[in-house]
């Protein structure tokens, strides 16, 4: 069923609509680079918004089973499946998205390729820009969170919200805008970039960021079906390898963070209040969230990993790439 010029067609499946920043700024440009570098011998069909079927948590299984050839997903959509990736989601772990993503790739190569990622061909791993609070009532002090119903995206972040004194609410993303607009929840944590697609700036009046620090981030996985990759001729494998890895991860992290800017502007234009927690108060937040890291280390130790070593390694790699 292939046209004469192209030898192989790859189905790229992901959960966001095609206009979102990750597909337009990272995934589609990557596909175009691959098509160009292979002289059109590889063609990549993009299926956004789960068009091939299933719910977002199934993407990881889909790429292993070959339902899709390439997927982009959130590691935390399948809690327990990529335990070592969670280290980058720990509170105040990330610095900036580009450096943290480069560190993430190096960490993944050192620890995850034969375990968490054993059944897939990993093309890139990255994180988004700093996550922050978007709320209907102002959050300036830690105590303001007391009694607030806050929605978090993954289990680590939901756990952190509980430690900070909020009432964490686990809720599917599609329910988020409506719940926020009606006050079923008081606040949500997402990066700026996501607020644009979900219209969050129109639904809340307050945003709370942490200056140069980052409350949290989310780990993403960009992967290919292993058998499909192995079935390619060597020169096409080389094309994919040359466009994947540390540089792709760092670039993707940077592009995701750059998409924060326009979304921030929308909130500013609308006259929303954007509060930056002053540096001397950030320590108080860090102390309140410290248990999340301790709990994670204990959990990982139980699973047979050296939790403390993983945390130290992640910190060291981020520091190294932030130079």
């Amino acid at each position: 069923t292939a046209a004469p010029a192209q030898e192989v067609t790859l189905k790229m499946h992901q959960f966001l609509p095609p206009q979102a920043s990750a597909p337009t700024k990272v995934l589609m440009p990557w596909a175009e680079r691959i098509e160009a570098a292979s002289d059109g011998r590889i063609k990549i069909d993009h299926y956004p918004a789960m068009q091939l079927g299933g719910k977002p948590p199934e993407l990881a299984s889909q790429v292993v089973d070959g339902v899709a050839d390439i997927i982009w997903t959130v590691a935390g959509y399948t809690p327990g499946r990529f335990p070592q990736a969670e280290v980058f989601e720990l509170p105040f772990m990330m610095t900036n998205a580009e450096d943290t993503s480069r560190a993430f790739w190096e960490y993944a190569e050192a620890n995850m390729m034969d375990s968490d990622f054993a059944d897939m061909k990993i093309l890139g791993v990255w994180v988004h820009g700093p996550g922050l609070f978007h709320s209907r009532k102002p959050i300036e002090q830690l105590s303001d969170l007391n009694g607030m119903k806050v929605r978090g995206p993954t289990r680590i972040i939901t756990g952190m919200l509980g430690e900070l004194g909020a009432t964490p609410v686990g809720m599917p993303v599609p329910a988020l805008p409506e719940s926020l607009s009606k006050g079923v929840i008081d606040a949500a944590v997402v990066p700026w970039e996501v607020t644009q697609a979900l219209k969050i700036a129109e639904l809340v009046d307050y945003h709370t960021a942490f200056g140069d620090e980052a409350l949290y981030t989310t780990a993403f996985i960009f992967a290919m079906n292993k058998q499909k990759f192995d079935s390619l001729p060597d020169d096409l494998k080389a094309v994919i390898d040359a466009n994947s890895g540390a540089d792709l991860s760092a670039l993707a992290g940077r592009m995701m963070a750059e998409a924060d800017g326009p979304a921030l502007e929308i909130a500013v234009d609308r006259g929303n209040t954007i509060f930056d927690v002053p540096p001397e108060q950030v320590a108080e937040w860090k102390a309140a969230a410290a248990n999340v890291e301790a709990n994670w280390i204990a959990e990982m130790n139980e699973k047979g990993f050296d939790g403390q070593a993983l945390v130290d390694q992640a910190r060291a790699l981020i520091a190294k790439h932030s130079q």
């Binding site: 299933g54 719910k55 948590p57 199934e58 299984s61 089973d65 070959g66 339902v67 599917p172």
Partner: peptide, 25 residues
């Protein structure tokens, strides 16, 4: 017919009936 085999058709059934029936909405 499209994928020249049963693998993809069957693989979709591993998760899709469960996830459809468990849909919160």
């Amino acid at each position: 017919a499209i994928t020249d085999g049963t693998a993809m058709a069957l693989s979709r059934l591993k998760n899709e009936p469960f996830s459809t029936f468990s849909s919160y909405s």
